[in-house]
Amino acid sequence: MNSVNDRSRDIGPFVPGPDDDMLICRCEEITKGEIRKAVHDGMWTLTEIRRYLRTGMGLCQGQTCSRLVKGIVAKELGISPSELEPAASRVPMRPIEMEVFANEAPDEKEGE
């Protein structure tokens, strides 16, 4: 089993760090401390972190912070960042207004 999925593993208690107030997710204004605490709250995957804290769910959709969040979570879990599966990629890849997202162009005949 991948160590990230072994939830019985003891990662120790949350120990406050000097740079816990460092902002990581610029859009949603989530700090390093919040991310580290979330890991100790049981959020061990990037998808969970995302849903729990909204990191990478702001306007930029994780363009800037994904890699940083990954590094922080991995360090907290004592694993290599490459062991962490990136959060799911899904539509829309870029910020888009709902009215545009819902405005489907009329279907044209194939080959046109």
Binding site: R90, V91, P92, M93, R94, I96, E99, V100, F101, N103, E104, A105, D107
Partner: peptide, 21 residues
């Protein structure tokens, strides 16, 4: 802006104020 790509090679594109496939 390509906002999505599906397994069957369908590409979803945002152009102006609408979405095209």
């Amino acid at each position: 802006t390509v906002i999505g790509l599906y397994q069957d090679k369908e590409v979803v594109v945002r152009k102006g104020d609408r979405v095209e496939h």
